[in-house]
Simulated assay, not measured.
Amino acid sequence: MPAAPSAALPPAPGAAALPPPGTGQGAADLAHAAAAHDLSPLGLFMMADPIVKGVMLLLILASIACWGIIIEKMIAARRLKAEANRLAGAVTGAATPESGLAAEVIRAGAREWHEGRDAAESRGEYRERMEYAMRAPLVAAFRAAEPGLPLLATIGAVGPFVGLFGTVWGIMNSFSGIARSGDTSLAVVAPGIAEALFATAIGLVAAIPSVMAYNRFTVAFTRIRQGAMASIHELAAGMARRPAPSRVRAAE
């Protein structure tokens, strides 16, 4: 007699049902591809195209230079502000500086004052001569503090475009890889695009502080210079109203 077909046994209570073959394979592939790509900043840099990597290195160096200039200009602005305050104190008679830029400015004006006013020279010309002598060391000090500001402006203006170049180049390479592989899954596309966008992010990190620092220091140096020039004008006007020691001795 032919054997009766065996009846399908129901699954045992509590036993987990096995998924049909092939189920979850796509998710496993995506997880494996994501694990193969390190999406941390260091990983994105190491996996980038050589040209994109060169762009990133250039922007990182620009950012380091930017912060070095910012720290140096902060120190220079603080020093110049202190010297301008000492000049303002000399105008009010609070204290006479004996060293530093303020003392050098006063000594330059005192030399002209000791020479006295020429017979054919008006009081205004006499004052202008003393002002010109006192402005010389002040202008030299501000010129010594200005180098680096043009580099801040350049980094702020060019940095985003350099990063954008790296991004465009990286996206072009990503699309070329998609065309060669024929796979448009997110796990394949995302790493290349992330590397490309990382270049733009570094460009913005370098550019934003540069623009802010350039504007800040430009305004700060201008205000300090204006205050120091006003003090020089007051000092020269006060000297012009007093007779020089050489003229006093000649009159005696």
Rank of each mutant, 00 (worst) to 15 (best):
T23G: 05
A65G: 07
I202C: 07
A236K: 03
P245G: 03
E128C: 01
G238M: 07
T23S: 14
D38I: 01
L101I: 05
W113N: 06
D29T: 09
I171R: 11
A103H: 10
T218K: 05
W67F: 14
V55N: 01
I75V: 15
G182E: 08
A194W: 09
A27G: 11
T154M: 06
F161N: 07
A199Y: 00
A94M: 02
P10D: 11
S40K: 03
G109D: 07
R225N: 14
W169P: 01
N85K: 11
Y132S: 15
A119S: 11
V211N: 04
V55Q: 05
A206E: 05
W67P: 00
A12F: 08
S63E: 10
D29Y: 06
L18P: 06
V91P: 01
V162H: 00
F45T: 06
I178R: 01
G192D: 01
S122T: 15
R249Q: 14
L59M: 11
M56I: 13
M134P: 08
A201H: 03
Q226H: 13
A228D: 07
A199I: 04
A179Q: 09
M46P: 00
P20L: 15
R78D: 07
G54V: 02
A213K: 00
F221A: 03
A88M: 08
F161L: 15
A88K: 12
S174R: 00
